[in-house]
């Protein structure tokens, strides 16, 4: 009478991990990002340079003086030390901004998608209001209104970039709430809050996780953009700040701008590779390949 267990399959998360592991670009992204994070965390133990201190003549090209492998900037500050010290704040702003984006976007999107009706209408009009504001300008206004610290910058980026996440969450929630296992949860007497948190959101997670990783990349670029425009936190070294402060001399010396630019490029690139890899890993249609 009992059917035999047909096959020993993995849990959805394990299966996604197996898919992810086979995705060479994604694994390369993980290795690259791990390297960047380790370098910014522990780089100072191996390379003790003060990024703020004037240590040499200005605009020393890279590879000339062994003590300053990447050369110096317009004030004669060590660029390699700047890269190591600036990585932490850059990554922190990116991660924090992505977290703020997700918290606002997912909560509002889930409420709008689940309740529909006037709740949906109201929340979507608010979302649209934020969406039509020119994001960079709006962020600039926020940063200038409050003093430009890492925290306010992360807040500003989060506040301008949540609408997309909200829309994505809403669409996912609307799709999932029509599925029978949601009706099944109602049929056994589950309350709405429980249905949203334990049934719908875990099932909506894959695209949201992917979107979160991509948001980190966008937030890092955003921070760089604000710093480039001179709106960054002037007291904290970051890659964006390095580009911003050296941009006036780019025709005289390419290296003070290029190396932090390269660092931003590699970070965003590796995060995008990971995001794409997660996207593929969670896509059931690709699994049987």
């Amino acid at each position: 009478m009992t059917e035999a267990t047909t096959f020993k399959a993995e849990s959805p998360a394990r299966e996604a991990w197996r898919m992810f592991r086979r995705n060479i670009p994604a694994v390369a992204g993980v290795i690259m990002l791990t390297g960047i994070v380790l370098a910014t965390l522990w780089g100072t133990f191996f390379y003790d340079g003060n990024p703020y201190e004037i240590v040499w003549a200005p605009h020393e090209p890279p590879g000339v003086t062994p003590e300053f492998p990447l050369g110096t900037d317009y004030l004669g500050r060590d660029i390699f030390a700047g890269l190591i010290a600036g990585g932490g704040p850059t990554l922190a702003v990116g991660a924090a901004a992505a977290a703020i984006t997700m918290v606002i976007g997912v909560s509002l999107g889930a409420l709008a998608g689940f309740y529909g009706g006037w709740v949906d209408n109201l929340l979507m009009r608010i979302t649209e209001f934020f969406q039509v504001l020119p994001t960079l300008l709006f962020a600039m206004v926020l940063v200038t209104l409050f003093s430009p610290t890492l925290f306010t910058i992360a807040m500003a980026i989060g506040v301008v970039s949540w609408p997309q996440t909200a829309r994505l969450t809403r669409a996912e929630v609307m799709k999932i709430k029509e599925l029978e296992y949601v009706t099944a949860a109602r049929a056994i007497g589950a309350r709405n809050r429980r249905i949203i948190w334990t049934v719908i959101l875990p099932n909506a997670a894959p695209p949201l996780i992917v979107s979160a990783t991509l948001t980190i990349g966008v937030a890092i670029l955003f921070e760089a953009g604000l710093s480039f425009l001179g709106l960054g936190d002037p007291n904290t070294m970051s890659w964006g700040l390095m580009i911003g402060s050296n941009r006036a001399y780019i025709l005289d010396a390419w290296w003070p701008v290029t190396f932090p630019g390269l660092a931003i490029f590699l970070t965003v690139f590796s995060v995008s590779l990971i995001g794409d890899g997660l996207n593929d890993a969670f896509n059931p249609k690709l699994r049987e390949r």
Partner: peptide
């Protein structure tokens, strides 16, 4: 009348 069990997967 029932047939017990299920069709075995092809790889097994």
């Amino acid at each position: 009348r029932e047939i017990p069990g299920v069709v075995p997967p092809l790889h097994m």
